[in-house]
């Protein structure tokens, strides 16, 4: 394995009694990159990341992390990685600083707990019990614990799920800072904006497989157009009529609206409006946005990420 790969896994399979969670998944993460596993709930993201973290054994497939395997060097690998689980809960009766001291103590080399407090902006909560922290503060504590051992590689499983916008921004800053200092990150998320903002490359995962891989820009460029129009009219226009609107590359009819992928808004929006008018229909709603990873997922699977 070339030294430039922080994670390399091939043909990963993990079955549970009732479901195949991971179904032949390949992944390679370069050193120094921020890599995102993107997919709906139940896609197999958590199982995958936990296999890479050495917390679950795959049924088959190979995993190399930082050049070694979990079987050969479990203890040495644990010293070199940091992680936050989905919904880690620390002991409610421990204080923030006590929790950090414990995590620091199990690593040979690491960051001083007081410095960690500064890093994740929890200084004023130093002596508060963990049970008294808000969701965002708990998540920052989880990240601080992940950083306590000065890891080379950071695993974050849905780090911003359930956070308020301000807390998300702070976490994004920390992740970016970690990467700037030479760290490698693998994170899972079902927020498209998060992946677009943070990740150098993303893998879209569905049903335990990677169905698309690339930089966010590359993935978006695989769409037939760069813009998306959501339109609702009364009565509705048929799919056929919509396809004939100039510049429309793809049409998806949903219950509440039709979603059109178009090359240029300037070309398609006026044409769409006149098509509605000439059909004797009334415009109810019209929204447009630049194509996002969300649209890529819809394009690939016909489903939305959040409710897939």
């Amino acid at each position: 394995m070339p030294e430039s790969l922080a994670i390399d896994c091939q043909d990963l399979v993990k079955k549970f009694t009732d479901v195949v969670a991971v179904n032949g998944l390949d992944l390679s993460v370069k050193t120094g990159e921020c890599f995102g596993l993107l997919g709906p709930n139940g896609a197999g993201k958590t199982t995958t990341i936990e296999i890479l973290e050495g917390l679950q054994e795959p049924d088959s497939g190979t995993v190399r992390v930082l050049g070694s395997t979990w079987r050969d060097h479990p203890h040495r690998l644990r010293q070199r990685i940091g992680l936050s689980l989905q919904e880690t809960q620390f002991h409610e009766k421990w204080t923030v600083i006590e929790t950090l001291r414990l995590f620091r103590s199990v690593f040979g080399d690491g960051i001083d707990p007081e410095e960690l407090l500064l890093e994740v902006e929890l200084v004023e909560k130093r002596d508060s019990r963990v049970g008294k922290l808000s969701g965002g503060q708990k998540q920052r504590l989880a990240v601080a614990c992940a950083l306590a051992g000065k890891p080379e590689l950071l695993f974050l499983d849905e780090p911003t799920t359930g956070l308020d916008p301000q807390s998300r921004l702070r976490l994004w800053d920390q992740i970016t800072r970690f990467q700037k200092n030479g760290g490698t990150i693998l994170l899972t998320t079902h927020y498209m904006d998060e992946a677009e903002r943070l990740c150098d490359r993303v893998a879209v995962v569905d049903h335990g497989k990677v169905i698309a891989l690339g930089t966010p820009a590359e993935l978006i460029s695989t769409l037939p157009g760069a813009n998306v129009i959501e339109v609702a009219s009364d009565p509705r226009l048929s799919e056929e009529t919509l396809r004939k609107v100039p510049g429309v590359r793809e049409v998806q009819v949903r219950e509440d609206a039709a979603v059109l992928v178009v090359g240029s808004l300037v070309e398609s929006v006026p044409a769409l409006l006149s098509a509605i008018e000439s059909a004797g229909s009334r415009l109810v709603n019209l929204r447009t946005h630049r194509a996002t990873l969300e649209d890529v997922f819809v394009h690939l699977t016909g489903r939305h990420l959040r409710d897939a």
Partner: peptide, 17 residues
Amino acid sequence: VTARSKKLLKRLVATPM
């Protein structure tokens, strides 16, 4: 059991402890 049910044990065994 409290530590296990809250995944704290799982988090701790993910460290070199």
